[in-house]
């Protein structure tokens, strides 16, 4: 198999032009995913414009009012508007998940490339560490980290990022090992190109295409981990509006009939995660048609 980013991109573009015909449902999966993400990102960006109330406003309406024309998704016990909190909450979860995925991909990709390229004891040790973290339930590690750090956006981002570094590391290291042996890399090395140039010019472009798919899926997972952590009461102060936290707050109203407090944040978390998973799924099948047959 040729590790060529242009070929992959070509397939992607080819797909766009011959949309639907060639790839069928996979394209629809991709497009729906992208639409969901786009919609929620737009909602997050325009939050101050579209939210009917300030998400912290404790006099937005009556206490624990069910959904109505005035408060589409009802109000909570502090008389805040649930819809506005949902709209603003998108900012937190998107921010944390994307930032975490960025951090883990940057760290994972660079470590993976260097490790795979340099080999030796450094590579062995690092691989061992990464493999151990990888095989362990990530959420449990994230819980441990998040509970120990001081609550805040940064802590939770780090807790989420840490557990995905091995995913990128393993992927990129494996590819680097293969590419390293390719003729064009060998020849570059033979004419005396510095290692950094080889890494940047020959190896990086080859690994980046596959990581794009992993990245998308990764954001989807990170969304669920972020929400899980805040649901468990770890990680964020109340001045930040967050879906997982609202879900946890609404939980105690479960038997007293205020269903809207737990229903909507959960629906949003699922939808957003679904968006990223569908996008990743679609991308994977289009970029790598072999997967399609599986």
């Amino acid at each position: 198999m040729k590790h060529s980013p242009t070929a992959a991109m070509g397939r992607l573009i080819g797909g766009f032009t011959g949309m639907g015909r060639k790839y069928g449902a996979e394209w629809w999966i991709l497009i729906i995913g992208a639409l969901i993400i786009g919609g929620i990102i737009l909602m997050a960006l325009l939050a101050p414009l579209i939210a009917p109330y300030d998400p912290h406003d404790q006099a937005a309406g009556p206490q624990l009012a069910p959904p109505s024309s005035e408060h589409l998704l009802g109000t909570d016990n502090l008389q805040r508007d649930v819809l506005s909190r949902i709209i603003f909450g998108a900012r937190t979860i998107l921010g944390v998940a994307i930032l975490a995925a960025l951090i883990s991909s940057v760290v994972g990709i660079s470590l993976g490339m260097f490790s795979g390229y340099s080999g030796g004891t450094f590579d062995k040790t690092l691989s061992l560490i990464m493999d151990s973290v990888y095989s362990f339930p990530g959420l449990i590690l994230a819980i441990t980290f998040a509970a120990m750090l001081e609550p805040g956006i940064m802590s939770i981002t780090i807790a989420v990022a840490v557990i995905y570094i091995p995913t990128y590391f393993r992927l990129v290291r494996g590819q680097t090992l293969t590419i390293k042996e390719e003729l064009y890399v060998e020849s570059a090395r033979a004419i005396g190109a510095p290692n950094l140039v080889i890494l940047g010019k020959y190896i990086f472009p080859n690994v980046i295409a596959t990581t794009a798919v992993v990245f998308t899926m990764n954001v989807g997972d990170a969304i669920m981990i972020e929400a899980a952590l805040t649901y468990l009461g770890l990680g964020l102060p109340p001045s930040i509006v967050d879906w997982g936290m609202d879900l946890a707050m609404g939980k105690k109203f479960l038997p007293s009939g205020q269903w809207w407090l737990i229903t909507f944040p959960g629906v949003m978390i699922s939808t957003l995660a679904l968006g990223f998973t569908m996008l990743g799924e679609g991308l994977a099948e289009i970029l790598n048609p072999r997967l399609l047959e599986r």
Binding site: H56, Q58, N77, L78, E150, P151, G233, P237, P238, S239, A248, M249, K252
Partner: peptide
Amino acid sequence: DTEVDMAAVMKQQLEATGVMEVKVKSA
């Protein structure tokens, strides 16, 4: 778990004076 609500409400009340700026923290 009512504590986080109490902090949020108190913050709102103190800031309503217009002369205080409160940052809520937890441990």
